[in-house]
Simulated assay, not measured.
Amino acid sequence: MDILVSGELDFETLVTRKPFNRDFHIHEHYELYLLLEGDLNFYVHDSCYPIQPGTLMICNDLEMHKAVLLTNEYYKRIYIHIPPTFLHQYSTEQTDLTTCFVRREIGTRNAIRLEPEQVMLFTRLVKEMHEARDSGGFGNDLLIHSRLLQILVMVNTLFQQEDLRDSAAAHYPPNVREIITYVDEHILEALTLDQIAAALALNKYHLCHIFKAETGTTIFRYILLKRISLSRILLAEGKNVTEACFQSGFQNYTNFITEFRKVTGFTPKKFRDMKLKEAAKH
């Protein structure tokens, strides 16, 4: 399964003491991911962000992403998974808490570099969220929500301040960037390994090796997840299932239904209906 399906608010502070490089995946919620210790590459769609402690990553429910540890040492991070309904519930006409998640192009402006005092505030608020959850006492849900709202106001404020955004350009090595650019430009075609290798004047085995070494996944897996991600965007925009199938590069309708369900846990129609119903409420 490459999608984490959850309608509930989820948050943890985790330390991983061995390399754990998950494949590309997509959430059914929005994610805040703050690196506290370690050295990672964070991939979002076509972008690769080299991130250091203090970098906050922002992903929405349409962005495929993964984190890759660059050393054999442990790393520590905080993640918060936020149901879109939570943001809509607490947003106002003046304050739209979805801003940092949706008011940008897919796979862009995902990183914000926090100052030390902002990291301390973020971690303190999450610690208080943990304490409220663990207490199970009266009003603990409101205490959790109030701390999360403070985090969301801070993050959205920073997101809208150009000079405080992470200025480091997202990048892949040039040879991998060339492969990804070609795939993106021809995603609607029936791509084959021979076709990609010939177009880029590369040995196909070398092509597979450098792509897997950099991204941690195969080029065929990347193409599949890229098409699934594109189809999710089209379905969320209101395209019907047939349109989403062929406008995302799938050549076979039955295969599209099978792969979409395998990756997301939903049929395309159910996913479309869910997204349109959600949009109608707001």
Rank of each mutant, 00 (worst) to 15 (best):
D2A: 10
V5E: 09
E8S: 07
L9M: 06
D10P: 00
E12W: 08
T16V: 12
K18G: 06
R22Q: 11
H27E: 06
E31N: 11
E31W: 00
L32K: 03
Y33A: 08
Y33M: 06
L34C: 08
E37C: 02
G38R: 01
L40H: 06
N41Q: 07
F42A: 05
V44N: 08
H45M: 14
S47F: 10
S47A: 15
C48T: 09
P50Y: 08
P50E: 07
T55F: 08
M57Y: 05
I58W: 00
C59G: 01
E63M: 04
M64P: 11
M64E: 10
K66R: 15
Y74P: 04
K76L: 03
K76A: 05
I80V: 15
P83L: 03
H88T: 05
E93D: 12
L97I: 01
C100G: 00
C100L: 04
F101W: 00
R104A: 03
E105L: 10
I106T: 05
I106K: 04
G107I: 08
R109N: 08
I112A: 06
R113F: 08
L114W: 04
L114E: 09
E115C: 05
E115H: 11
E115R: 14
P116A: 09
M120H: 14
L125Y: 14
V126H: 09
K127Q: 15
K127F: 13
E128K: 12
H130K: 13
E131D: 15
A132F: 04
G136D: 09
G137P: 02
D141Y: 10
L142Q: 12
I144M: 08
I144E: 10
R147F: 10
L148S: 03
L148E: 02
L152V: 06
L158E: 07
L158F: 08
F159D: 02
Q160H: 05
Q161C: 09
L164A: 11
A170I: 08
H171A: 15
P173C: 04
R177F: 11
R177P: 02
D184A: 14
E185Q: 15
H186Y: 06
I187R: 12
I187D: 11
L188D: 12
E189I: 04
A197E: 07
A201S: 15
A201E: 15
L202Q: 12
N203E: 14
N203L: 04
K204H: 13
K204S: 13
K204N: 11
K204V: 10
H206G: 05
C208I: 12
C208Q: 15
H209E: 13
I210K: 04
I210P: 01
F211K: 00
F211E: 01
E214P: 01
E214L: 02
T217C: 13
T218P: 01
I219E: 01
I219F: 03
F220C: 07
R221A: 13
R221Y: 13
L224C: 06
L225G: 03
K226L: 13
R227D: 10
R227P: 09
I228R: 05
S229L: 06
S231D: 09
R232P: 00
R232K: 13
E237V: 02
G238M: 11
K239Y: 14
N240I: 10
V241H: 06
T242L: 14
E243A: 14
A244N: 08
S248T: 10
N255E: 15
F256T: 08
F256I: 10
T258V: 07
T258A: 11
E259F: 04
K262C: 01
K269P: 00
F271C: 01
R272Y: 00
L276Q: 13
K277W: 07
E278C: 01
E278T: 05
K281P: 00
H282K: 13
